[in-house]
Write a protein that binds this DNA or RNA. Structure first.
Length: 574
RNA sequence: CGGGGCGUAGCGCAGUGGCUUAGCGCGUCUGCUUUGGGAGCAGAAAGUCGAGGGUUCGAUCCCCUCCGCCCCGACCA
């Protein structure tokens, strides 16, 4: 490709809105252009990168016996009504009506569509297992798109769905899918991807993992032990907490005028936050049910864990009116007097296993000292669970070593779905005995554009992206410096022609721009290998060669350059 | 959905209740000169000043409404 004809201008200055490096460089390098909030066009160089990522994904999916299909972006609401998601999913699902006033939707994921396909095409245990995948546009009407391609509304996703006769078979396949994902992220050139335990939400005992590209701009928080043996999303991470027990003392009511927060109460009573219990009221958004969460004062409630325990997919803080409506005093609510008939009570282990805590008295300006869960609360009427948010330095549940936190971009997700969709939508198979069962499903996703952005986050310098050879838009950048002089143009043209014949992907800067201008553009394009033809070196029968990742230049004999390039490309692709 | 910010040439930004023609830098086009990290000179094209309404003799500027975009938070199958 000739740069004089390449569509997609490079921009000298950072776009004012962009905060993350991938966002800046994707715009500045002419890879993508915004069309609307969270909706982007891919320009030629961006499209080439995406295609290479997709090719790698296809190869790895085929390797684990995947079969590529293509399902529609637009689906009839009926299909989603079968699974119940037409009504259960919120506003991220874009619904609309066609000319016949029929409810339609833009697919944000394809479980329903793939089940629709499989339940008519597959009916015998002899045909199972099968895995179908596609690379298809997804639309999610995100409330807040951000950070360029990291969180968008419209994007290409590789989504795969496997169907099995048994949980054991699913689990065996899940391991293969996990390995395939590791190969994909390694091959696209991500330097640091962790698979971590993820929140399975309301799916019951199912297992899921997220693949996280580690980088500071990531939206998720990953909890790991120092040796990485434990890796989990903070939403579900736990720790090997131990709590000090001591002999219970008598309950004692204390006057705590105006003290509501843990800090105020602890200071006033003369104890540490560890010696207090904190009551937090939540409300299940869907059902309106109130939840009383009790946790030791120095911990924070983890809403994901609480939601899982409380079987609530969406929680919010309860307002004071709702709290008063069940007879509690906001700021002084007490586990000692709260009515389990009116509110679901969930007590964190940190409270259940501690002694002599300061808790609310359910009366303005009063607290109780020496609360002991086992003695003072009827355990049969409350749920004891782990609802605490892990903190940096808490002990690892596997090794006991202090846990650390890093940020990550979720680039992939694998999930043991079970029969949630197959049962609801009657996707059954007949076993050896002619008996019908719902198929056991798994699903596996990769965000393609997000993966491209994540590679930049992990592989760039101050001048632009440094693309790995496997997904670089071109393999070689050929620059003609001062092409009107001393046969430079002719020599560069000849080398360009030779590269094309050799099947090497080459971007030829034939514009005759000033050196600085040309090099800055080249850096923004991040092409791994660069050859400069200039009057200076050509006079000695040489060209200049360097890689994008190092800034050292080597002089190579004109006759030898093709060999060097072929060698470097081969090396880099292995 | 809550909080904040911004909409003026392709991009980044000034600016003003009237100055008979809205500027600056970058980019674009023409010509010349130039060629090792985003050159110089000369000339040119390019704007419904986000939309609608109001105040006013007169609005890009003041007021109201709406729309769009960005940032923080909430949310995220």
């Amino acid at each position: 490709m000739r740069m004089s004809k390449l569509v997609g201008r490079r921009i000298k200055e950072d776009p004012k809105d962009a905060k993350t490096v991938s966002h800046k460089f994707l715009i500045r390098g002419g890879y993508v252009r915004p069309v609307s909030a969270g909706i982007y066009s891919l320009l030629p160089v961006g499209k080439r990168i995406v295609e290479k990522i997709e090719r790698i994904i296809r190869e790895e999916m085929d390797r684990i016996d995947g079969q590529e299909v293509l399902m529609p972006v637009i689906l009839p609401a009926e299909l989603w009504q079968e699974s119940g998601r037409f009504t259960s999913v919120g506003q991220e699902l874009l619904r609309f009506k066609d000319r016949n006033d029929k409810d339609m939707l833009l697919a944000m994921t394809h479980e329903e569509a793939v089940v629709h396909l499989v339940r008519t095409e597959v009916s015998s245990y002899k045909q199972l297992p099968v895995m179908l995948y596609q690379l298809q546009t997804k639309y999610r009407d995100e409330a807040r798109p951000r950070a360029g391609l990291i969180r968008v509304r419209e994007f290409t996703m590789k989504d795969a769905y496997s169907f099995h006769v048994s949980q054991e078979d699913l689990e065996a396949y899940y391991v293969r899918a996990h390995e395939a994902y590791e190969r994909v992220f390694k091959r696209v050139g991500m330097k640091n991807v962790l698979s971590i335990e993820a929140n399975s939400g309301m799916m019951g005992g199912s297992v899921s993992h997220e693949f996280m590209a580690v980088c500071d701009c990531g939206e998720d928080t990953i909890i790991t032990s120092p040796d990485y043996s434990y890796r989990a999303n903070r939403e579900i991470a736990t720790a090997a907490w131990t709590f000090a027990k001591s002999a219970p003392l008598a309950l004692e009511k204390v006057h705590t005028p105006g003290r509501k927060t843990i800090e105020e109460v602890a200071e006033f009573v003369g104890v540490t936050a560890e010696q207090t219990g904190k009551a937090v009221f939540y409300q299940n958004v869907r059902t309106g049910e109130l939840i009383f969460a009790l946790i030791r004062g120095d911990f924070e409630v983890n809403e994901s864990k609480l939601g899982n325990v409380a079987m609530a997919s969406e929680l919010k803080f309860a307002d004071d009116a709702a709290i008063r409506a069940i007879g509690c005093e906001p700021g002084y609510a007490s586990v000692l007097s709260v009515d389990p008939a009116k509110v679901k009570i969930i007590v964190d282990r940190s409270v259940a296993e501690s002694s002599n805590l300061v808790v609310g008295a359910n009366e303005a300006d009063y607290h109780f000292k020496n609360y002991n869960f086992g003695r003072d609360t009827d355990g049969a009427r409350v749920t004891v669970a782990d609802i605490a948010t892990v903190r940096e330095g808490d002990p690892c549940p596997l090794t006991g070593a202090p846990l650390t936190m890093v940020r990550g971009i979720e680039v992939g997700n694998i999930f043991q779905l079970g029969t949630k969709y197959s049962a609801a939508m009657e996707c059954n198979f007949l076993d050896q005995n002619g008996k019908s069962h719902p198929m056991i499903m798994g699903c596996y996703g990769i965000g393609v554009g997000r993966a491209m952005a994540a590679v930049i986050e992990q592989s760039c310098d101050e001048f632009g992206p440094v693309w790995p050879m496997s997904i670089a838009p071109y393999q070689v950048q050929l620059c003609a410096l001062n092409p009107g002089k001393d046969g430079v143009g002719e020599a560069a043209e000849a080398l360009y022609a030779e590269l094309l014949v050799a099947g090497i992907e080459v971007l030829f800067d034939d514009r005759g721009e000033k050196a600085g201008f040309m090099f800055s553009d080249a850096d923004l394009l991040g092409i791994p290998l660069r050859v400069v033809v200039s009057p200076k070196s050509l006079a000695e029968g040489k060209v200049e060669f360097r890689t994008r990742s190092s800034r050292d230049t080597e002089l190579i004999d004109c006759k030898a350059i093709m060999g060097v390039l072929k060698e470097r490309i081969k090396e880099a692709l292995n």
